[in-house]
Design a protein around this nucleic acid. Structure first.
Length: 791
DNA sequence: TAGGGTTTT
């Protein structure tokens, strides 16, 4: 079957020739991702002798897609991967011969900071723009500017610089944010719609919206399985727990394998029927072309027509004809969970055909909506909800909340039933809920997430006035100013003119969030950089594994083991985990025993290499290498590491409530952190050390920094806690500190020779709430008629 | 002793 997009080749190519920007809309299955690059290639784009000799770039939001699409296109064009290449964070196949390059959008963004004109490329195709990921959005904004620049330069000297073309591809028609945004594209680009190779999917709404969508899904799946013909079932739920629960229910009701006796009976029935048909077919006396293989006998096609009361009716076609038979057994269901934190092997099982005589039933989160396409799905059961990470910009408090998805999302989910044939989608909510409570589209990522990384990146590209940047959807002003403030605290930008500093420029070269980049930049002291790199690599990766209830005790033991030398930081615990993993030979067994995701540990490993090489390349005085047998840090190094961590999280300090209420000194004695409240810098709420923290079972520290702040069902908890010494704050967190008048006691000391210097004690106060800290000693000097604290 | 969707440089 010809791909729908092929019918539009002329229209598409003409549009690209005549416009600098073209938008192509086509749902999954239209073939746009694989075909449009080929159209361009075959029309001579990227050919060294053509007028557009630059590479054809196609960006993808996900690594797997970049790799697999490159393979696919290479295969279709019959070209090696040195010509149709891919580049993702840790894997490049480009060469001098490369003509088509698939890459993640993050890679292209990185390249932009090296070469703002993208001189290597003649066309940039941005795929999956409808997902509205942060990187994709930024890329569209930057590229719209590059277009103008390239056009201007090319007008000056066409021989030297060719104009750039941009193709934005979207699976939905929500493109007005791109097309009707005059700051983005002055002239609205043409939109070409391509039909999808999609079979019809009938949508069935529930009459009523149930309270418990898992129970409802169980009922619906049972009905489908008991009564409807063959075809895989895909169920969308919101999270791991729900998925595991429904898996259990369904596996209990429909054991995974058909009884052996039933399988044998089916075989017997089919063989007997085939023999009979063969005999009938042979009667006319025609030479039956006696083909050599008996294996061709039947197994041609079999369709499950209906199942009722445990009786399965099949239509079976073989080369001699077709016949119908029924057989009765408890219908088996091949139930598989699917979510991203599942190990790769478990994820791959959904691509295997289910065991003979069973029906595939995949219970999935949102991964199955975009990242993973499961073959053979005919029925979709959609609970209509999704778990979403929320982020409170003002307070920095994160939470996970289950809410209705969008209409666009529900459409994507339904579409999963129509990939191999006509399908059905059962929505476990009423059409009234769909009409009234569902947003048209999901919120773009840029409106939901902190953007300090994006802002720093822009500043490093020379885009100083971020407010004027042509975002497809601009971030909230507050989000932007929060990002700029944080960059200021980290010393990455000048706090007055908001211009990038040399430190900021160095940070922008590091592919981690600005906090972590700051830690790397200041971490090159006392031979600590390898530790800081390992810490940053671990913090950048989701490391822990979901654990079952039964395993709690063992999990806790493994945590304590990993705390190693120092029990006052969850982050130093991570360092120990990384060290122990490498020491044990980086094996999957080690991960299994220690409740770690081996995928994540491998990622950390690669990231350590990348960061180590980058640090060595970026800084002249840095001499680091990856040492698998990294020795544990010394006591002095541990103290330094904690100070580095403090610097990275300087806006995330919390101090015990009882200590603040007691004027910064003393406070109550506690056995452990249970119920011990902390005050936060940016919120009136109180927060607590999470029971999963290594610090929970100890006397809670007076002050701490945290990696994340999470709002749970009952309390707001810190995640990734490091106990700190309040004495460090005036030094590391200067911008948050102010000092009171010098104390009379202890008595100030004046310098001997000149009387314009003195050493005094002052009470520092920290943060936006002016928390009192214990007195510290500072040096003051005379400036005119006033005494000021020396830097 | 609370609990966690999905990406990426």
């Amino acid at each position: 079957m010809k791909l729908p997009v092929c019918g539009e080749e002329q229209v598409i190519m003409e549009a690209i020739r005549n416009n600098t920007v073209v938008v192509i809309c086509g749902e999954t299955g239209s073939g746009k991702t694989t075909q449009v690059p080929q159209f361009l290639y075959e029309a001579g784009w990227s050919h060294p002798d053509s007028d557009n000799p630059g590479l054809i770039a196609i960006t993808q939001p996900r690594r797997v897609a970049a790799v697999s699409m490159a393979k696919r296109v290479g295969y279709e064009l019959n070209l090696p991967e040195s010509v149709v290449s891919h580049q993702i964070r840790y894997d490049v196949t480009t060469s001098e011969k490369t003509r088509i390059k698939f890459m993640t959008d993050g890679v292209l963004l990185r390249e932009l900071s090296q070469d703002l004109l993208l001189t290597k490329y003649s066309v940039i195709i941005i795929d999956e723009a409808h997902e509205r990921n942060l990187n994709t959005d930024i890329l569209i904004g930057v590229v719209s500017r590059v277009l103008k620049l390239r056009a201007e330069l090319s007008r000056e000297d066409r021989a030297k610089i060719k104009p750039l073309r941009v193709v934005i591809m979207s699976a939905t028609l929500r493109v007005s944010d791109f097309t009707e945004n005059s700051t983005l594209f002055t002239k609205p680009p043409p939109v070409i719609s391509v039909n999808a190779r999609q079979y019809p999917v009938s949508i069935h709404f529930n009459k009523r919206t149930p309270e418990d969508h898992v129970a409802e899904a169980f009922k619906k799946v049972s009905k489908i399985h008991d009564r409807l013909p063959e075809g895989g079932i895909l169920i969308f739920l919101t999270g791991q727990n729900e998925i595991q629960h429904l898996c259990k229910l369904l596996r209990e009701k429909y054991p995974s394998l058909p009884p052996k006796a039933a399988l044998e009976e089916r075989k017997r029935i089919r063989q007997a029927a085939e023999l009979e048909l063969k005999r009938d077919a042979a009667i006319p006396g025609e030479e039956s072309d006696s083909d050599d293989s008996d294996s061709d006998l039947g197994f041609d096609e079999e369709e499950l027509v209906s199942t009722k009361d445990g009786k399965w009716e099949y239509i079976y076609k073989c080369e001699y004809g077709k016949f119908t038979y029924t057989i009765s057994y408890a219908a088996p269901l091949h139930v598989l969970p699917l979510y991203s934190s599942l190990p790769t092997e478990a994820q791959l099982r959904v691509f295997q055909p289910p065991p003979e005589g069973t029906r595939l039933c995949v219970i999935a989160t949102n991964v199955a909506e975009t990242s993973v396409t499961i073959p053979g799905i005919r029925y979709v059961v959609d609970c209509g909800k999704a778990k979403e990470r929320r982020y409170d910009i003002k307070t920095g408090v994160q939470s996970f909340e289950v809410d209705w998805t969008s209409k666009a999302s529900a459409g994507q989910r339904a579409g999963r039933a129509g990939r191999t044939g006509p399908g059905h989608c059962y929505r476990l909510y009423s059409s009234a809920v769909f009409d009234h409570d569902f947003e048209q589209f999901s919120t773009p990522e840029i409106s939901r997430m902190p953007i300090e990384g994006v802002v720093l990146n822009m500043k490093s590209m020379g885009i100083d006035n971020v407010v004027n940047f042509p975002f497809p959807t601009p971030p909230e002003r507050q989000t932007l100013s929060k990002a700029e403030k944080l960059l200021g605290y980290l010393g990455a930008i000048d706090t007055d003119v908001k211009h990038i500093t040399p430190v900021g420029q160095a940070m922008a070269n590091l592919p981690v969030t600005p906090r972590f980049a700051k830690m790397l930049v200041i971490g090159n002291q006392q031979d600590c950089l390898p530790f800081v790199i390992a810490i940053v690599a671990a913090l950048s990766t989701e490391i822990a594994k979901a654990r079952r209830r039964l395993m709690r005790k063992k999990y806790f033991e493994s945590q304590i083991k990993h705390a190693g030398l120092d029990r006052s930081s969850d982050i130093l615990k991570l360092l120990n985990v990384v060290g122990a993993y490498e020491y044990a030979g980086a094996t999957a067994e080690f991960c299994e025993e220690n409740f770690l995701r081996s995928k994540a540990m491998e990622e950390i490993r690669k990231l350590r290499w990348q960061l180590t090489n980058l640090m060595a390349a970026l800084f002249e005085n840095v001499d680091v290498w990856v040492d698998p047998k990294m020795l544990p840090p010394t006591k002095r190094q541990i103290k330094f590491l904690k100070q580095v961590i403090t610097a990275g999280f300087i806006d995330s300090v919390a101090i015990r409530k009882d200590v603040i209420e007691n004027g910064g000194q003393g406070g109550t004695r506690f056995k452990n952190a249970r119920g011990v409240a902390y005050k936060l810098m940016w919120s009136e709420e109180e927060a607590f050390i999470h029971p999963g923290s290594i610090l929970y079972s100890q006397e809670p520290p007076i002050a701490l920094v945290y990696n994340e702040l999470f709002k749970g069902a009952t309390k707001t908890c810190f995640k990734g806690v490091t106990a700190i010494d309040t004495k460090w704050l005036p030094e590391i967190g200067k911008e948050f500190c102010s000092f009171g008048r010098p104390l009379d006691h202890p008595i100030p000391k004046y310098s001997e020779q000149t009387k314009d210097k003195k050493t005094v004690y002052v009470v520092p106060s920290f943060g936006p709430k002016g928390w009192p800290l214990p007195p510290i000693q500072v040096e003051m000097h005379r400036k005119g008629t006033r005494w000021v604290i020396s830097a």
